[in-house]
């Protein structure tokens, strides 16, 4: 634990009780669970493939461009109905990122198997996500062959 001095400095700078740290580390996992439950409930009664009840991407509505999250609702709907190829067609990054995000939520919650440490160390780098998300957002707007497959249509 060579970062112990820094840790001491941090606790001094942030006067927090130990019990306050407990709920917040479970929050991302709780949000994922709540989100999955909400998706299950909503997608039983409404489909994002029918224009109407479920909201489209505000960014796409404003700019006409695809954002990294465009097609997420349709991808989740297809995933919930067991149609993986269709989900990949709507938002491949979301399908790939979901298990990764689950892993990161578990890591934040304190579930940290040592075997997964190198993986999490790479995934926990915000720069990686910045490059992947922005790169995906740019590439899926290119109108020709390999990149057009990334667009949700």
């Amino acid at each position: 634990m060579r970062s112990l001095p820094t840790t001491d400095g941090l606790t001094a700078a942030l006067p927090r009780e130990p019990w306050q740290a407990l709920p917040s580390r479970w929050l991302p996992l709780a949000a994922l669970a709540a989100g999955s439950a909400a998706c299950g409930l909503v997608f039983r009664n409404a489909s994002p493939y029918d224009r109407g009840l479920l909201p489209p991407c505000p960014f796409h509505a404003c700019t006409g461009l695809y954002c990294p999250g465009c097609g997420s609702t349709r991808a989740l709907y297809s995933l919930m109905h067991g149609d993986l190829p269709q989900a990949m067609a709507m938002n491949p990054l979301l399908v790939v990122a979901l298990p990764v995000v689950l892993l990161m939520c578990l890591h934040v919650a304190g579930f940290r198997p040592r075997a997964l440490d190198p993986v999490v160390r790479v995934l926990a780098n915000p720069r990686l996500w910045l490059v992947v998300l922005l790169g995906f957002g740019v590439l899926r707007n290119l109108p020709f062959a390999p990149f057009a497959w990334l667009a949700p249509n």
Partner: peptide
């Protein structure tokens, strides 16, 4: 994690 979820 929150930032990624918000972006997506």
């Amino acid at each position: 994690v929150w930032a990624i979820l918000c972006t997506l």
